[in-house]
Amino acid sequence: MKIMLNGAPAEVQAETLAAALEELGYGEARVATALNEDFVPAGARAATRLAPGDRVEIVAPRQGG
């Protein structure tokens, strides 16, 4: 299905957020996620189903002021 991943179109086979992270190469990366502007805790990713057009944000620690 087509989703928006960090603001860009992406194609995934996965049906859950956890599976999508695996498919997209995040593996064990230290990331946090949001689906359609709502935070999804790491523990809830496996039970979070994706639908076409979903907006997925994946962020990681960065420099900040």
Binding site: Y26, A29, A60, P61, R62, G65
Partner: peptide, 22 residues
Amino acid sequence: ATVSVRRESGGEKAGAAFWELA
């Protein structure tokens, strides 16, 4: 120390490197 969160692409692993530094 102040830090932020920003978008990361698959396999980038920049977050892990910065986390170690911080």
